[in-house]
Design a protein around this nucleic acid. Structure first.
Length: 875
RNA sequence: GGGAGCUUAGCUCAGCUGGUUCAGAGCACCUGCCUUACAAGCAGGGGGUCACUGGUUCGAAUCCAGUAGUUCCCA
């Protein structure tokens, strides 16, 4: 069989992904094995794959593949999220480009456009995940607006309403004038802006004189209904009970007193606009002030503003300033930096606005969700996110779940002709309730008017771990009982409140159980300057280009090598490059092994036997290490373990030892054992690099059609001989010592050397001599009792190694090296003795620690003796 | 304004309940080598007052307090 010298990821990856999916290896059905379940954080249906998805889904795939290979029934459920605001905004824009205004369409017509868009773009991101190698159970692909999920959302709304947890209230909400919808607190991003602080003079009603207030939003004076001072502020005592006139419109408003006012800030005198500021709203409530809503839903001024009606709020700000100056109301203007809320989705500046919305009472719901994270029933990795979580949960506010959008789940509330309303899953059920409620049996569905608003997207995704198994509609179904609770959730910390917390809440409310056992928070993918990847900066590579360039395995490895849990990943193209380099390394190791000619009639050499025994033990140790690392979600460390094992232990040591001389065959026993070890190693690597491991695994031995490495079991955790591993480390050190001598003395590798060993207490075990002979290319290895003259030397622990080099040896050089070694060892002994001669240390430290120090002492003393003898011998 | 975290090699980070796997890894850097699978490689090497100050202790990167810088969350 001809093995290509270059590994070509593109075609190989496509071949195996097809092989896996055609045989439905990713598909899971409940059986008697232990389930392992992950639900994907559903990406936005209209989105495209970005670097964050790459990292996140690589980690999920590693966890799922590993679970599958440890005998679990692994199920990774994929799907997408309808992303109400973002998708609606995209559809609205697209229609606008076609000259269609959303408000010229009926709801039905608009939804048709939205569905068309979804069908066209909805699958893209999932198709891209396939290129990454994601082993999702594609038969289970779900969408937050498909039938099962939609019905679940509606059912939950009705249920919570009937439990008295959902209510309608007029509240100050964050209004997005671009999307014309309310947003939840979590959807508002505060940014610092350089703006101005305007000092405005309000004339006192019926008197000469003014009061001066400071504001960043002069246009809102049109909605002022009071001016407020601190009751403790002597400066304004004389204003008590008086009134002032709002500039330009000359409305007379009262001067009120409230502790809220900060005497230090601005002029100590605050204008109150209850309709457009949350704090003013609260003050307004306390003082029974009227609210004047001066804005329309799109951010233009309403007729209640009296001036500038129909003009945009920011244009009005520009225009009102000269007006105020002209009227003599402008005292001064200062530069000022303040934080302004922006819409997460549309980036429009948020307008605090009074409006009627639906809210979910959170106070009771959060209790089990908080408790079970704090007591680690649900573990966060890294655990520092527990703090953030607790803080939010302890300061929880009712969740505004209505959005003034069409794309989403329409709120199942039906208004009756008299203004009353009922809440029901369907219009038919609503009609029944309405008849009951009103006693009017003549009502028809046409008399009911369903609430226009849609639900917050998170109100559907919070059910995701349950709804993907249809556990809301059919709580007793076999799948939900088998797969739920899910095992691990992999997500980014920026949606800990939006999504993670709410899933936990929903889990306890609807299953009385946690939704997942572990939450692994990935870092953000940034560029090398720590900037977030963003379209506008153009610093984000296209993941698919990277895969095309470096292969999916290379990209996966590159992303993970540098991505500790919760730490940000500073992406640089040399990462996938390194990943691809590692793939090549493995490929070359495979080529080496596979191209050996195998001879049945050759005896297995001693060195090969020893090396194989050593590596078998090494592998068991690695399996144990990986197990620990995975248990702690130290996934990038686990990859590093694999990386160094393959590069150093397997390629650098095992293969070099067993490698037959040039153009000579290898004995069958060594060959088969090497292939077997390679096979084990490939399995350990498979979750990280599924494609190259499958390709090599398939070529390593004859495989039946339908076999796959992904369906194999990982090598189990087994005990290993740690003395042997330690002994082999001494062997490596000895071989390195000889290599160093070669290097120092410029002795080519092809020349053989002689070696004499003066064995000390430690540092040498003769059973590995054959390995040393092979690896150091020795012509002889002799045990000696005395030191050897005319030789370069080095020490491993208390064993002396001599390489006789007549004529080459520079005694001065050798002595210098020995003196240095002696000096260091003496210094080391000194520090140990200092400890041991400290009575309080010997008396107070645990016995084991003292014993260790004593061992250090005797080792150091032995080494000093060896060095001193050697020095004396040379002199 | 409130809260949480972080600060260890040029970069990104490990370092568990204080004590030889305590000063580590990968990358980067430097020096040799085209040695027979691999120059996308191999063999070596340099590099850190563990942010600062004090405390606890026989012993502190590790525990405590304060200071500085920095990041995130919330308002």
């Amino acid at each position: 069989m001809e093995i290509p010298s270059k590994y070509t990821p593109a075609e190989i990856e496509e071949k195996w992904y097809k092989y896996w999916t055609e045989r439905r290896f990713f598909h899971s059905v409940p059986d008697d094995r232990e389930p392992y379940t992950i639900v994907i954080p559903p990406p936005n249906v209209t989105g495209v794959l970005h670097m964050g998805h790459m990292l996140n889904n690589t980690i999920q795939d590693i966890l799922v593949r590993r679970a599958r290979m440890t005998g679990k029934n692994a199920c990774w459920v994929p799907g997408t999220d309808h992303a109400s605001i973002a998708t609606e905004a995209k559809v609205v824009n697209k229609l606008k480009e076609e000259g269609i205004d959303k408000y010229d369409l009926t709801r039905q017509e608009f939804l048709e456009h939205a569905w068309n868009w979804t069908h066209k773009h909805g699958g893209i991101i999932l198709e891209q995940l396939k290129k990454l190698g994601a082993s999702c159970d594609w038969d289970r692909t779900a969408f937050t607006m498909d039938e099962a999920r939609s019905e679940s959302v509606i059912k939950v709304f009705v249920d919570l309403y009937n439990k008295g947890l959902i209510y309608r209230g007029v509240r100050m909400v964050h209004w997005d004038p671009a999307a014309k919808t309310a947003l939840s607190d979590e959807e508002v991003i505060y940014k610092e802006l350089k703006s101005k602080l305007y000092y405005l003079k309000y004339k006192i009603d019926g008197e000469d004189g003014f009061v001066t207030i400071a504001t960043t939003r002069p246009e809102t004076i049109l909605g002022d209904t009071a001016v407020c001072v601190n009751p403790a502020d002597e400066r304004f005592a004389h204003l008590k009970g008086k009134r002032v006139l709002v500039p330009l419109v000359n409305r007379s408003i009262p001067i009120i007193e409230d502790d809220y006012v900060d005497m230090e800030f601005g002029t100590g005198c605050l204008k109150i606009t209850p309709a457009h500021d949350i704090n003013d709203y609260e003050i307004g409530m306390r003082h029974n002030l009227p609210s004047i809503d001066i804005f329309n839903d799109d951010g233009t001024l309403s007729k209640d503003a009296e001036l500038f009606v129909g003009e945009d709020r920011f244009d009005v700000r520009d225009k009102i300033i000269p007006e105020l100056e002209k009227a003599g109301n402008m005292a001064k203007i200062e530069d000022y930096t303040n934080k302004v809320g922006f819409s997460e989705r549309t980036d429009a500046i948020i307008e605090p606005k009074l409006s009627a919305q639906w809210f979910l009472k959170m106070e009771e719901l959060v209790k089990p969700a908080l408790e079970n994270v704090m007591n680690d029933t649900i573990s966060f990795h890294p655990p520092k996110f527990k703090n953030t979580y607790r803080h939010w949960m302890n300061n929880i506010k009712d969740w505004c779940i209505s959005r003034q959008l069409w794309w989403g789940h329409q709120i199942p509330v039906y208004y009756l002709p008299q203004g009353d309303f009922v809440c029901a899953e369907t219009a038919e059920k609503a009609l029944e309730l309405a008849k009951e409620k009103t006693g009017n049996t003549n009502l028809t569905i046409a008399d009911l008017r369903q609430d226009e608003d849609a639900l917050d997207t998170w109100f559907s995704s919070w059910l995701w771990p349950i709804s993907v198994f249809d556990g809301i509609r059919f709580p007793e179904n076999e799948e939900i009982k088998y797969y739920y609770p899910t095992s691990d959730l992999v997500t980014a910390p920026d949606i800990i409140f939006f999504w993670v917390a709410r899933m936990i809440i929903a889990g306890y409310e609807y299953r009385d159980e946690l939704p997942f056992k572990n939450v692994y928070f990935t870092g953000m993918v940034r560029d090398t300057q720590r900037r977030k990847m963003s379209k506008s900066l153009g610093n984000s590579p296209d993941p698919l280009d990277l895969i095309a360039k470096y292969g999916a395995d290379g990209v996966r490895v590159g992303m993970l090598l540098c991505s500790p849990a919760g730490g940000d990943l500073l992406f640089d193209e040399n990462l996938p490059q390194q990943g691809a380099g590692f793939v090549t390394k493995i490929w070359n190791a495979f080529r080496l092994v596979k191209n050996w000619e195998v001879a049945e009639n050759i005896e297995q050499p001693e060195h090969s036997k020893l090396a194989i025994e050593w590596f078998r033990n090494k592998l068991h140790q690695v399996v144990e290490t990986l197990d620990e690392q995975f248990n702690q979600f130290r996934i990038s460390e686990a990859l590093m373990t694999i990386y160094t094992t393959v590069r150093d232990e397997f390629s650098g040591w095992l293969l070099e030892v067993v490698k037959p001389p040039y153009q000579q065959p290898i004995d069958a026993k060594t060959y088969n054992e090497t292939v077997d070890l390679f096979d084990q190693l490939l399995r350990l690597m498979h979750p990280f690099m599924p494609f190259v491991t499958e390709e090599i695994w398939q070529l390593l031995k004859n495989r039946e059609d339908g076999e796959s490495i992904m369906m194999c079991q990982l090598p189990p955790v087994e005990s290993y001989n740690s003395e042997m591993l330690a002994a082999f480390e001494n062997v490596k050190e000895a071989i390195s010592g000889i290599r160093n001598i070669r290097k120092d003395k410029n002795i080519p590798n092809k020349d053989t050397l002689e070696l004499c060993i003066q064995q000390g207490d430690k540092g040498f075990e003769p059973q590995f001599n054959s390995v040393i002979i092979k690896m150091a290319h020795l012509s002889s290895l002799e045990m000696v009792t005395d030191e050897v003259q005319g030789a370069a030397s080095f020490r491993v622990k208390s064993t002396n190694f001599y390489v006789p080099l007549e004529g080459f040896i520079d005694v001065e050089e050798e002595l210098k090296k020995l003196e240095e070694e002696l000096k260091y060892t003496k210094g080391f002994l000194n520090s140990v003795m200092k400890k041991l001669s400290n009575e309080r240390f010997v008396n107070n430290a645990p016995e084991a620690v003292v014993a260790k120090e004593k061992a250090k002492q005797s080792d150091a003393e032995a080494k000093i003796k060896v060095l001193e003898e050697r020095i004396a011998g040379l002199k």
